[in-house]
Computed example of a mutant assay.
Amino acid sequence: MKKYFQSIAYVVSVFAAMYGLHIAITTYEKPFDIYENPLVWIILIALILMVLLRELVNIVALERVEKLELEKEGIDPETVDRYAWFRKLLKKWTRSKAIEEEGEIVLDHNYDGIKELDNSLPPWWLYMFYITIIFGVIYMARYHMFGGDDQATEYQKEVAEATRLLEQRKQQNGGVVEVVVDANTATILTDEASLGRGKAVFNLNCASCHAQDGGGGIGPNLTDKYWILGGDMKSVFTTISDGGRTGKGMVAWKSNLKSKDIEKVASYILSLQGTTPKKPKDPQGELWEEE
């Protein structure tokens, strides 16, 4: 029964991790940016660790079965060298001599009783040395004989490429360069695409405390007219970006979310005003009225 429970728990855990990874990848614009979206990498590493742990458990189980079979055949498991293949491989790649064989490579001279061994260079060291020679020849030919780009040339090319992308972005935005949004320049967005993006980011990062319908949980209700830190666009943007009250409010999200996404989340939150959640939390803060 325990075996089946472990298998079921493993399958469920892997499925949950893959589902969480799918949600994160489809939600974020750049899901594999480790600085903006560490959640993707955390789930990915957790998934890999689960698979490795499962394999480790299987290896331990196989070793136990092998030990029992040896005992049935009357063989002492302690006398079986399971790592003979590794020792053979290690000896091949290091060309090391056993202590009993060192007499074969002792040089015919000593210093105050100190003898010297004529050990061969390890193959792994020799191969790495040969690789550095080959790399050096290719490098010299590429950059000193055939005119490869030096650092200054590479820099100039990267600047030219960045300038081209900037001009392309200007053309896409009607000649205006995209700027970073802050609390003073953020506006309430009402188009379907922006609200859809805001909802996706809200469900991933905010719903655990405020509920998916905004009715509140650990965090306050976002559908009523009562606000702790203000209910206009500037206040909501600032609260999301810089965090709530010190010591008991939510954390700052400016290091995890782009400013444009914060603007979309704030717009989505404000669009929840007047809706009816399933389990609305009691009002918190003060009644907010637009000036």
Rank of each mutant, 00 (worst) to 15 (best):
S96K: 00
G147S: 11
T223V: 15
F15P: 00
N58F: 13
E290V: 09
Q284S: 09
I105S: 11
G216T: 03
I105N: 10
D150K: 02
L287I: 05
Y139I: 04
K254Y: 00
I42A: 09
E78V: 12
L90E: 06
I134P: 00
G175E: 09
G147T: 00
I34A: 11
Y139C: 09
V12A: 05
G198C: 13
D232C: 08
V51Q: 12
Y83A: 09
V137T: 07
L49Y: 08
V12D: 02
W93V: 15
L126G: 13
V40S: 13
E167Q: 09
I269Q: 03
T79C: 09
E178N: 11
K234Y: 02
L117I: 08
E101M: 06
E29M: 07
E286S: 15
Y127A: 13
Y226W: 10
I133S: 08
L21N: 01
W227Q: 07
W227F: 13
T27W: 04
E66R: 11
S7H: 03
M145Y: 08
K199H: 04
E263D: 08
G231H: 05
P31Q: 13
I45H: 04
Y35L: 06
I75R: 05
F135K: 02
Y10L: 07
Y19F: 10
G198K: 11
S267E: 01
Q156R: 14
L70Q: 05
V159F: 07
A160Q: 07
E55S: 11
I131H: 10
L121Y: 02
I75N: 03
Y35Q: 11
K279I: 07
D149E: 11
I42T: 14
E154W: 04
I48L: 15
T238V: 05
E102Y: 00
M145Q: 09
G74S: 03
F237Q: 03
S255Q: 10
I75Q: 04
Y35A: 08
E286F: 12
L89E: 04
L68M: 09
P38I: 06
G196T: 06
V236E: 00
D76R: 08
S208W: 02
A200S: 15
I99A: 13
A200V: 12
Q284W: 01
L166C: 08
G249F: 11
N184P: 03
V181S: 04
P123G: 04
T187N: 10
I138C: 08
V176E: 13
P277W: 00
D191S: 07
E104N: 09
S259Q: 15
F146H: 04
A152S: 14
A183E: 15
L257F: 05
V179I: 04
D261Q: 10
K3Y: 10
A266Q: 02
D108A: 02
